[in-house]
């Protein structure tokens, strides 16, 4: 299987502290993957590197069929190439309506000039309505997103990610602060999304990961400790030591 994202030999250090140490990672074009690890394992830094927020000291990050290197590119370019990122806390533009938020995220030209002359047509409005319906915000289109509840903001952000139509979706602890029902809904949605694109879920919660039922990568001290099914990695003595040992 040829991979969508290929990270190899990546290292990065902050003030002498090696946050990521010779990390290698691959994911296919339509795959769900969970990344777990204890605090400080480098999960967030890994996402920062892929999305261009942090520049690694060494290594390669290649994306897509043409193996485009992501290293020299800005966050915005990487996002345009097709990497979407969902933050742990919902970040929507609270001053603007749900429609505005979704409209902004819709896949379209991103340059200032193009944006200046871009006006939404009927197709775009229909697409926004469809997305809003999908994330349960059909009734709230005209509301300012700052008025939404915490959970609704989470959904709005997911809706915005869908509007971006990314080929790779990085999701940071999606289950944090959700009720049980919301978790199940989220699980179903992630599994569904992974049918058409690659989804990487960074998660603490083993139970949630088990429910995703996908391949798991365990990070520890900046490199891959183990990889495989959830049962395989939880049986690994090193993983047990890392999670329970100390």
């Amino acid at each position: 299987m040829n991979s969508l994202l290929e990270v190899s030999g990546v290292s990065v250090s902050f003030d002498g502290f090696r946050a990521i140490n010779n990390l290698s990672f691959q994911i296919g074009p339509a795959e769900l993957r969970a990344v777990i690890g204890p605090n400080g394992a480098g999960k967030t830094t890994f996402m920062d590197i892929v999305t261009g927020k942090t520049r690694p000291d060494a290594g390669r990050v290649l994306f897509g069929e043409k193996s485009i290197s992501l290293l020299k590119r800005s966050e915005a370019e990487i996002a345009r190439i097709g990497v979407g990122r969902k933050f742990q806390r919902p970040t929507v533009f609270e001053d603007q309506t749900v429609t505005d938020n979704l409209m902004m995220a819709l896949k379209a030209a991103r340059g200032p000039w193009k944006v200046l002359f871009w006006r939404p047509g009927a197709a775009e409005h229909a697409r926004v309505r469809e997305l809003a319906a999908r994330v349960g915000l059909a009734e709230a289109l005209a509301r300012k997103s700052g008025e939404l509840s915490h959970g609704q903001k989470q959904w709005l952000e997911i809706g915005m990610l869908l509007a971006q139509e990314p080929r790779l979706l990085l999701v940071d602890e999606p289950a944090a602060g959700m009720t049980l029902a919301e978790r199940e809904q989220t699980t179903a949605m992630l599994v569904d999304l992974a049918k058409t694109r690659a989804v990487v879920v960074v998660e603490h919660d083993m139970e949630f990961v088990r429910r995703l039922g996908c391949k798991v990568t365990v990070l520890h001290e900046g490199s891959v400790l183990a990889e495989g099914s959830i049962d395989h990695v939880t049986a690994d003595p090193r993983v047990i030591e890392v999670y329970l040992g100390r």
């Binding site: 966050e75 915005a76 996002a79 979407g84 990122r85 001053d95 603007q96």
Partner: peptide
């Protein structure tokens, strides 16, 4: 977009806007 930049510039970058 520019109001979004005012409120959260990093988020706008991850939406793909320069």
């Amino acid at each position: 977009v520019i109001r979004a930049i005012r409120d959260d510039e990093q988020r706008v970058r991850f939406l793909g806007y320069p």
